[in-house]
Structures are given as C-alpha cells and as structure tokens.
Amino acid sequence: MSTHGNWRKSSYSGEGDGNECVEVANSTTHVAVRDSKAPSCGTLTVPAEVFATFLGGIKRAGAER
C-alpha cells in the first residue's frame, strides 16, 4: 500500500501542531494508522471494511453515553 503524502489527521487532533492524535491513510482496499507523535515507528494496516466496522463501533459507543 502506497501512502506517501496521503496521511491526514483528525480535526480533533489537539491544539497547536496537532500532534496528539493518530493519522490515517486510505487506499481503495486498506486503511493505515500511525501515531502522529512517532510516525516512523510503524503503522497498523487493516482492510477498509474492518476499519469501517471499528469506526461504527466507536460512534455507537459514543452515542450510548
């Protein structure tokens, strides 16, 4: 998966330089996630449908609070 130049941070990534969050990069089949404070330490790459299910679970849990 080529993610060069495709990394983006959440709009919730914090004040200042926004280094308090994760970054994600999408391809048509996968999503890569890395720590914005240490981007060279590695990435977690999962199939796009798995990431969508993960986000859906987070949204549902937030709505239940």
Rank of each mutant, 00 (worst) to 15 (best):
M1I: 14
M1E: 14
M1S: 14
S2T: 02
S2Q: 06
S2R: 05
T3W: 08
T3F: 11
T3E: 12
T3A: 14
H4N: 15
H4W: 11
N6L: 13
N6R: 15
W7F: 04
W7S: 08
R8F: 03
R8L: 01
K9V: 03
S10Q: 07
S10Y: 01
S11P: 08
S11G: 13
Y12W: 11
S13G: 14
G14L: 05
G14K: 11
E15A: 13
G16P: 04
G16R: 11
G16S: 12
G16I: 09
N19V: 14
N19Q: 15
E20W: 02
E20L: 00
E20K: 09
C21H: 07
C21A: 13
V22P: 09
V22A: 13
V22Y: 01
E23N: 09
V24K: 03
V24N: 02
A25C: 06
A25Q: 06
A25I: 03
A25V: 03
T28A: 12
T28Q: 07
T28G: 14
T29H: 02
T29S: 12
H30M: 03
H30G: 04
H30V: 08
A32F: 03
A32G: 06
V33G: 11
R34W: 01
R34G: 07
D35S: 03
K37G: 12
A38N: 15
A38W: 13
P39G: 05
P39K: 01
P39W: 00
P39M: 00
S40H: 06
S40K: 07
S40I: 01
C41Q: 15
C41A: 13
C41R: 15
C41W: 09
C41F: 12
G42R: 12
T43Y: 00
T43P: 00
T45F: 01
T45L: 01
V46P: 00
V46G: 00
A48N: 11
E49S: 10
E49G: 03
E49A: 05
V50G: 05
V50W: 04
F51H: 12
F51Q: 09
A52Q: 06
F54T: 08
L55G: 08
L55K: 04
G56D: 05
G57A: 03
I58R: 00
I58A: 00
I58F: 03
I58G: 05
I58W: 03
K59L: 07
K59N: 07
R60T: 11
R60H: 09
A61G: 05
A61C: 03
G62L: 08
G62Y: 03
A63M: 02
A63S: 09
E64P: 08
E64Y: 11
E64R: 14
E64S: 15
E64M: 14
E64T: 15
